[in-house]
């Protein structure tokens, strides 16, 4: 990569020249576009530019999800060398929670992902995920598209520590790998609906700890009932380095879920929700008017919410070509 002028990123406020640098493979331009993906001012233009297809085959997009402390970052850190050894390049989007109080965040996932400093085949980016967003950062779809177009063979998304119902990630990626630490539930826990259903692969983490085998056996019994689609269950120990190559191998042959029509439709629904939420935040006066009307007209909540949705959509339509 030829170092451009020192002031490249400071002076460059213009999307076209950053985009050109990005298309030439400039990692700084990639970093800047990943930042701008959050900015409503640039997002329509980014979507437009990302529409033109490139020749290269798409990335394999993998989500690693699980409860806080399950070992997501550590596992990714341990997977990186294996992925690189197989000759693949890889980008990581590591989400950590954004404070609902201050809006700030402490992004510390990459501590657990040491990388050879000269290895340009790895790119790690930390993202803050707001509360109530099912464990992923906003505008994740556009960031994934940016990384894919840049040419990474693999893209790994690490969600924040999630609960049972944070399933939105399933529509954005090819494969969802769910991490479950030992001794974190019993047979009934694994019967419940939610995240376990969208997982394509279940990994019992911390396989060196007592109880890992038992947890894996319980999961095996409960998830792979006769007559239901089989779900691979693996035991991995990042500390001992066991099970890692089995996992990479399993992932390499994983079916690609993103191409499913249903996933594509739900991805658009996520985006549509984002558009409405953004209107809601930006057009406070419109919202205030509606609230006033709701009081005057004596609307119930359903009527008021329907009017709000209608008003926000009309407002959006008026601004969009």
């Amino acid at each position: 990569m030829a170092p451009a002028t020192e002031t490249f990123l400071r002076d460059e406020k213009d999307l076209s020249s950053i985009w050109d640098a990005y298309e030439r493979g400039d990692r700084r331009a990639l970093a800047r576009l990943l930042t701008w993906a959050e900015n409503p001012q640039y997002r329509p233009m980014l979507y437009q530019r990302l529409r033109s297809r490139t020749q290269q085959p798409g990335s394999f997009v993998l989500a690693i999800t699980g409860s806080p402390g399950a070992g997501k970052s550590t596992l990714i850190g341990k997977l990186l060398p294996g992925i690189r050894q197989r000759g693949h390049t890889v980008a990581v989007l590591a989400c950590d929670p954004r404070s609902p109080v201050s809006g700030g965040a402490l992004l510390g996932d990459r501590i657990r992902m040491p990388v050879m400093v000269e290895d340009q085949g790895v790119y790690i980016r930390s993202l803050a995920a707001p509360p109530g967003r099912q464990g992923i950062a906003e505008n994740l779809d556009i960031r994934l598209a940016l990384l894919e177009r840049f040419g990474f063979d693999w893209i790994i998304v690490e969600t924040i520590g999630v609960g049972q119902a944070d399933v939105a990630i399933g529509d954005l990626v090819d494969c969802v790998t769910l991490l479950i630490p030992p001794e974190s539930g019993d047979e009934i826990q694994w019967e419940k609906a939610g995240l376990l259903e969208v997982a394509d692969l279940v990994v019992v983490s911390k396989g060196d700890l007592p109880g890992a085998g038992r947890t894996a056996a319980q999961l095996q019994q409960t998830l792979n009932l006769p007559g239901f689609p089989a779900k691979p269950i693996l035991v991995v120990s990042a500390a001992k380095g066991t099970g890692l190559s089995d996992l990479v191998q399993q992932l390499e042959t994983s079916p690609r879920r993103r191409q499913q029509e249903e996933s594509q439709a739900r991805r658009l629904l996520l985006l549509a929700q984002e558009i409405l939420a953004q209107r809601f935040r930006e057009r406070r006066e419109l919202v205030a008017q509606l609230m006033e009307m709701a009081r005057q007209q004596g609307w119930d909540d359903w009527q008021a919410a329907s009017q709000l949705a209608r008003g926000l959509m009309a407002n959006h339509a008026a601004d969009s070509p």
Partner: peptide
């Protein structure tokens, strides 16, 4: 948004983090 990449980094590693994180 504070990004903390941990202990014992070389100057090269720090600059890499700064670049990747914009």
């Amino acid at each position: 948004e504070v990004i903390y990449p941990g202990l014992w980094l070389s100057p090269e590693a720090v600059v890499r983090v700064v670049a990747e994180e914009d």
